[in-house]
Design a binder for these strands. Structure first.
Length: 202
DNA sequence: TATGCGATATTCT
DNA sequence: GAATATCGCATAG
């Protein structure tokens, strides 16, 4: 049984305001979603940094209507729709006015697993939140949550670690065509709930 | 396990 | 019109 009372909302001053540091920091922390049907939560086990000036980042070409949340003060949600099928969630990662984000790629489910199974239409635990699109689907994350302050404890927030975090590994990022050699993907080594090919999981 | 493919909608060129 | 920070299914080894 998970002791969810041990999870508290992360304060903004606890979050590094540097993209790469934030991505590493978020491994092992909690993602919590409060819905009318109950609470969903999980441990963040995989994330990627898209720092300022990164050609693979959505903020690279400057502020637009669709990417404006990336320019919010660190700790806000940037959510977008990709490939006609998947929502994806980022955490804005720098000071206000600087466009950068951390893409949450995988979560180890803790609370609300039956609801995730219904949303995803599968009972395979390891597949519920493995991959950015699946994660968003399980958690009921969509464009309506874009721009939300994740340090406020609303419908979606970042929480402290539910249990001790393992060793954090790094690798290149997944699914991009620009700046593909940079080691900006972070994950909890040995965790079974991350996405990507096996060679990038150790 | 790895690779390849189509589906799908939004954004930018 | 092209590209895309993906997914699920098919097939081969």
């Amino acid at each position: 049984m998970v002791d969810d009372h041990s999870i508290v909302v992360l304060r903004r001053r606890d979050l590094p305001a540097d993209t790469e540091s934030l991505a590493r920091f978020l491994i092992g922390k909690s993602l919590v979603r409060e819905t009318a049907e109950g609470r969903l939560s999980g441990r963040i086990v995989e994330a990627e940094a898209y720092p300022p000036g990164d050609a693979a980042g959505h903020a690279f070409r400057g502020l637009t209507e669709s990417n404006r949340s990336l320019f919010l003060e660190h700790g806000h949600a940037y959510i977008y729709f990709a490939y006609g099928s998947s929502y994806m969630m980022n955490v804005s990662a720098e000071r206000a006015g600087i466009g950068a984000g951390v893409l949450l790629r995988a979560v180890e489910p803790l609370e609300g697993i039956p609801l995730m199974e219904r949303r995803r239409n599968t009972e395979r635990l390891v597949d519920l939140c493995r991959g950015p699109g699946r994660l968003a689907r399980s958690f009921g994350i969509d464009k309506g949550l874009d721009g939300l302050d994740l340090c406020k404890g609303g419908p979606l927030w970042l929480g402290s670690a539910a249990r001790p975090t393992g060793v954090v590994g790094t690798s290149v990022r997944i699914g991009i065509s620009q700046e593909k050699e940079r080691p900006l993907r972070f994950f909890e080594r040995g965790n079974h709930f991350m996405s990507g090919p096996l060679r990038l999981r150790g």
